[in-house]
Design a protein around this nucleic acid. Sequence first.
DNA 1: TCCCAAGTGGCACTCCGTGTCACTACTGTG
DNA 2: CACAGTAGTGACACGGAGTGCCACTTGGGA
Lengths: 198, 198
Amino acid sequence: MVRHERGEMFGRPRSTTHESIESVALDLFGRNGFEQTTVDDIAAAAGIGRRTLFRYFASKNDIPWGRFSEGLAELARRLEEAPRDEPVWQALHDAILDFNAVPAGGEDQHRRRMRLLLGTPALQAHSALMYAEWRGVIARFVAERRGIAADDVRAVVVGHAALGVSLAAYETWLAHDDADLGEQLDAALGALRDHLAE
Amino acid sequence: MVRHERGEMFGRPRSTTHESIESVALDLFGRNGFEQTTVDDIAAAAGIGRRTLFRYFASKNDIPWGRFSEGLAELARRLEEAPRDEPVWQALHDAILDFNAVPAGGEDQHRRRMRLLLGTPALQAHSALMYAEWRGVIARFVAERRGIAADDVRAVVVGHAALGVSLAAYETWLAHDDADLGEQLDAALGALRDHLAE
DNA sequence: TCCCAAGTGGCACTCCGTGTCACTACTGTG
DNA sequence: CACAGTAGTGACACGGAGTGCCACTTGGGA
């Protein structure tokens, strides 16, 4: 029973990748709509079996989210590095701006993906499960900074609120072709502060 | 082509009610779990056909939400009646407390229902669609008070934040058997204000 | 050359959700 | 007491998502 470091070099090589399937699927979703595209369509277009597709993605709904979970680890690390003399809300705001920064040139693709995610009922619903993980990262950061438990309402509510600010910004960003996502995030946060400070 | 006021008294009488199906279903969900209970199980237990069940509820996921949509109209009316010299956040907070007030004696049932809704992945996901309607009511109220459009980020973000406060309160309420929902809502809102005012 | 580990994909199955359609149980009228 | 009109019911069949099972394929290592 020997342990191999590069386990990937054993056994039959993979016939595809997450990225390849995702790319093919987003193309089909964009052309025919999410509901109208069946898993069989995607598998056929990707040149793999339907059963194989379900080994790469747990569900059809998971496909448009791509490597989101990996991005969360990055967000968590980014928060840990925030200077400790900065207000918590400020550190959060900066990290969230960073997290949502669109890689230069990828603006169009990002818009298409987010329009799909926020505009398709089945995906809106499924996204709630992704958001829960995202909120968890925020709540744990707040809890650590404040010296309270991660399930304390004071930490949990900040996770929910930060998500709300982000989603509000995304919705208005998608509604206006000429809008800048970062500016919308600023505006949303500012509006919430004003609202509560009235 | 005569119009009858009491249209219900025509034709074949209904063989069941939303409430009856819901009650049977919640009982099965509680005993066997949501995923393990099939629509056929519910229909059989309710003494109706499977097809009939789908005429009363659009999906299995919709059953635990019961008459939620009707409650939304009540929330909207409640907000319209709020005194106009009250701060917007205050009017919202009062209305939300009211909306979530548990009918005396129904605390246990409310807890069971919310535990099901917030603790079942499939329902967490589906709930996002209900939340969207709820947020819409809040955003429209804020927009009306502030004289801005309902899709303005300043109104949208308040809808998201109010939902976040409510969900945070529900989560901690469910986690502590001796907690009071109203107090958790107060605590969540207070914590968010403190957080942003830092 | 043979073996083994990991990946693949076909098959059959369950369950959700939907379209169709004949049937049933009422009400009001002549 | 027919009879027509109306609304609700449920059986049947179908398509799509997701799952368990298992034989097959493709490489590397002994």
